[in-house]
Amino acid sequence: MPARSAKRLKRALSSRPVSVLIYLSVMAALIGASLKGAEAMGYNWQWYRIPQYFFEHTEGGVTLGEIPWGLVGTITLSTLAFVLALGIGLLVALLRLSDLIVGRAVARIFLEFVRNIPLLVLLYVFYYVLGPIFGMDRYTASVLCLAVFHGALMSEIFRGGITSIPAGQWEAAKSIGMTTGQIYTYIILPQSIRFMLPPMTSEVVNVIKSSAIVSVIAVVELTTVGRNIISDTYMSFEIWFTIAAVYMVVTLIISTFASYLERRYAVQD
């Protein structure tokens, strides 16, 4: 009997209305606490000033404000970095899986190097050290830094995807005389996309989130825009809540799209 009632309790707790209720009360407590804290320190809420950073009313009509432009900056930066990271990741993965001892060593060193230093330090290395040496501007340095950092992480996704294809596929392709390049292009990679898709989309989200770090070298994107607005207006609470919400909306849209893709690919098998 106790086991049964425990089960019933568990089921009740995980039912949708109860979950929503718990979620709402936690959120209410959090928001209540912050509001109370803000009130205690005499914070002057000025939410009415936020919309102008989304849409500006000018003589020519309504134009996009600073925050949407910051978002465009973030998306451009992330897209460039992601595409480059895909290339780097695939290259590093193929080197690690190759027969060449030198190739494997290079890949391994690169991976350990990048994985074991903080992103912020890597950015400083790119901007303050490699930047002057190779004459890179801050935007190029940011894109390359993000690409290298996420390329290292993605190489593990590629490697996982590639090694999850059974050895028999390699043998069959070899036995009809294909080259290693052909086997990857026509047999292995097309099949491993299914395995790589879910972690890759979460990597897209990670790139967008870590792109915020380039605000420390004043590259224009969403976080930098937030900092700039705050230094003009001192509305740090409103602006950071807003910026966080914008990031969340973007990454939630991507996650939703990702789970849709996952379901579609899963059915095809």
Binding site: A172, S175, I176
Partner: peptide
Amino acid sequence: RAVRQEVGMVFQQFNLFPHLTVLENLTIG
């Protein structure tokens, strides 16, 4: 590779390419 083109092999586990149709499995070589 020259030898492999002259030597066909059939495996215990078939090892067909699952992402290709039967016709594509045959024509890819």
